[in-house]
Design a binder for these strands. Structure first.
Lengths: 134, 134
DNA sequence: TATTCATATTAGAATAGTTCTAAATTGTCT
DNA sequence: AGACAATTTAGAACTATTCTAATATGAATA
């Protein structure tokens, strides 16, 4: 039944069910846990599982998932790295510069007194806080 | 007198006064204006001024300036790009994803109700908000 | 079920921004 | 001026990501 669930998840988000997408979706969403992931990690995991998918395809897949709203991108880490979050609810992170470890911030840790207003002619598409610790 | 000012600025921050550093400091700090800059932009400007400095040196210089506290790094933009800010006071930015334009957020635009607390064993070294607009 | 065709996959090349290397140069301290 | 550590430099190397273009594959249709 697992593959059925993945199938409906993908089609419900307007994504064709290809083998790579199904495998990536199973890896990321099957257990319902929140994850911070990179393309490299996904490719490695699938490789270990004997379900190798080309790295370029993993990138395509993660970008498709993001556009479809299945993943969120985490900005503000090291330049040159894309990290995705399976938790697409707005929330914030601590980033340990020494260990590279990324953890969710408890929702209560940060609350805004006043929301920022976008400059004229633009609208806010995303914002998130990365608090860098050491 | 300008070069004297730059000289004292550099030495006051523990930096040896080399030609590249003096030129970069003049470009960035002479007029007291706030700037968002990249290594490429600095190298181009110096080139136009007939004071060419190797790109690798510009990177070295900007990183030295940052460690010395003369510049701040802006995180949270496109992965793969380092942007520095001559305004080292804590403040936040709007980032226009379409135009690439980066603007300071008026201080009043965003206020925190509660500051986040670092995870045990770590201390906060930096945090900033990048609000992405379109 | 066979056909069709837009969409997706893939390997490998290309790209972009940044850092590294190692040799030559240059500040600064005596 | 002499000495030496720090800095500069050109170009190579590196890394993460995207592109290319040929091949394969879902899924809609007949």
């Amino acid at each position: 039944m697992k593959s059925f669930d993945t199938h409906t998840l993908l089609t419900a988000h307007g994504l064709r069910c290809t083998r790579p997408r199904v495998k990536v979706a199973e890896l990321l969403f099957a257990d319902g846990q929140d994850r911070h992931i990179t393309a490299e990690w996904v490719a490695d995991e699938l490789g270990k599982m004997g379900e190798a998918v080309a790295l370029a395809t993993v990138y395509n897949t993660l970008n498709s998932f993001m556009e479809a709203g299945l993943l969120a991108q985490i900005n503000g880490l090291e330049a040159g790295r894309y990290v995705f979050d399976t938790n697409t609810e707005p929330h914030h992170h601590f980033y340990n510069e020494t260990t590279g470890c990324l953890t969710d911030m408890p929702p209560s840790a940060l609350r805004f007194y006043k929301m920022p207003e976008a400059p004229a002619g633009t609208e806010i598409v995303d914002w998130q806080v990365v608090v860098r610790v050491r």
